[in-house]
Design a protein around this nucleic acid. Structure first.
Length: 430
RNA sequence: GUGAAUGUAGCUCAGUUGGUUAGAGCACUAGAUUGUGGUUCUAGGGGUCGCGGGUUCGAAUCCCGUCUUUCACCCCA
């Protein structure tokens, strides 16, 4: 029977694994240097955990199943609920601030498209318990730090930042009913994704009153923080939100990444649980979906049965990121990183045992070493050494009778005879 | 979930109005090369033409279904 891979999944051959590890290793490295510590949870949880905070739409995109004990479970589609559960369970014992990161494998039964698969990895960084928008600035800095470390530049990407609090306050100030907020958010989120006339038409369907629509359109056309004041008038909540945004941009400037960030009132985020600062990172060149998205969520821990504790964070999936890094040529030459240090070749069949002893010694000493199973002509073995990207080749030949090894540099072709004892002494010093 | 396009070797692709045993480049294996690799040359292996059914004397080619991938919706935690 010919079995093919499941829709929306990927096989990771060694070269694919090298790319995946490049991303995962960098996520980890950047997280740690930004002061985050790693956590993880189970790959499946109770189905109810995801149904609780989500509608039927999201529930229908879960991989759910029943175990032999009749428990209804689901493979995790995100890790934030797990984070909330874990933090809630130990909230009184955890030192603050809580700065945690994870790179979980997630599954969603969505229709696969470019940059969206059914199984993927998503880097999550979260800061729990810090009210000041300095925490939001840190999240944004960390995400930007990663993209810069991956080789991207200010010319490649932009962090678009807005505030749910601001939009909520303004809509309330304009007289939009509270129960209509989520519907209006959904429309506003489309602002930069569809043509202007289509946007206005959608808004018209959501809001009947033309005066309110005019005000919303005026708000949505604002392209800088300074122009917001005039529209907000004396509304206290709106002005608080504006002040918070100004403070955030101040932090970002202090941290030296202001040139990567832009106020964009069209950033709303689909998810209902965001309550404050929200942001998304986009590739400037393509029209791909966001590389990264996140924001402040103040009610989530309470929603999962804990205390009301403020939190902020973001997620970055490996699908869109991988495509963009690939397009920009930033995932090249990764196989070389796995190359071995020493390829041991033996000139005669009778020297195979000596080669094996040397290999074992090299490996015990911590060097990456390999050899040819087949042996055969020295030329063949050298060929294999090149094929596996060995940086040096150790040849065991007639000189070995006097304890001499031939060490050849495979990059420049130079070689020299070295006594075995000196060779290992030199190895230890490295 | 809706609509559309796509599928030939591991990869990128040829393949005539339906006509003999489906090809190329790269990759892979082996040899040229019995103490020196990357280059080169030669040879070889590898395809139920995504899968299933239909039309036909005859199907990679035409028709239907199905799966995959991609695109536009829906959604995007």
């Amino acid at each position: 029977m010919n079995i093919q891979s499941v829709k929306g999944t990927r096989d990771f051959y060694p070269e694919d694994m090298a790319r995946r590890n490049f991303i995962a290793d960098l996520w980890k490295e950047v997280s740690i240097r930004n002061g985050f510590v790693e956590y993880d949870g189970p790959i499946f949880e109770y189905l109810a955990m995801y149904q609780q905070k989500s509608g039927d739409e999201i529930a229908s995109q879960l991989f759910a199943f029943e175990d032999r004990g009749g428990r209804m479970l689901a493979i995790r589609p995100e890790i934030t609920p797990t984070l909330a559960r874990m933090v809630n369970q130990r909230i009184n014992a955890l030192p603050r601030p809580i700065k945690w990161f994870s790179s979980p494998r997630l599954c969603r039964a969505e229709r696969p498209q470019k940059g969206r698969l059914r199984e993927f990895f998503q880097w999550n960084i979260d800061i729990i318990g810090v009210e000041d928008c300095l925490a939001d600035a840190e999240i944004i800095f960390c995400a930007a730090d990663f993209l810069l470390a991956a080789g991207m530049t200010a010319a490649d990407f932009v962090v678009r930042i807005s505030s749910r609090r601001l939009i909520a306050a303004m809509l309330e100030y304009f007289g939009v009913e509270k129960e209509k907020l989520n519907a209006v958010y959904a429309v506003l989120d489309k602002k930069s994704k569809i043509p202007q006339d289509a946007f206005e038409k959608m808004l018209e369907e959501a809001i009947a009153d033309s005066d309110k629509r005019r005000k919303i359109l005026a708000l949505m056309s604002v392209d800088s923080l300074d122009k917001l004041g005039g529209i907000a008038g004396a509304d206290e909540n709106a002005n608080k939100a504006i002040d918070e945004l100004k403070k955030l941009f101040g932090w970002l400037a202090t941290m030296g990444i202001a040139d990567l960030c832009k106020f964009d009132i069209g950033i709303v985020r689909g998810l209902a649980y965001y309550t404050g600062i929200v942001f998304e990172i986009y590739d400037k060149a393509g029209d791909m979906r966001a590389i990264c998205g996140g924001g402040r969520y103040d009610n989530l821990l309470a929603d999962f049965g804990g205390q009301k504790i403020t939190a902020t964070g973001c997620g970055m999936g490996d699908c869109v990121l991988g495509i963009i890094l690939e397009e920009k040529g930033l995932l090249k030459n990764l196989a070389v990183a796995n190359s071995i240090d020493y390829f041991v070749a033996f000139a005669e069949e009778s020297l195979q045992n000596d080669a094996l002893k040397l290999i074992a010694k090299l490996r015990r000493a911590g060097a990456k070493a390999d050899f040819s199973y087949k042996g055969g002509a020295l030329g063949k073995q050298m060929k294999q050494a090149s094929a596996v990207n060995a940086s040096k080749c150790v040849i065991i030949g007639q000189e070995y009778q006097t304890g001499q090894l031939v060490v050849k540099n495979m990059t420049d072709g130079s070689q020299q005879n070295v006594a075995e004892k000196d060779f290992f002494d030199g190895l230890r010093q490295q």
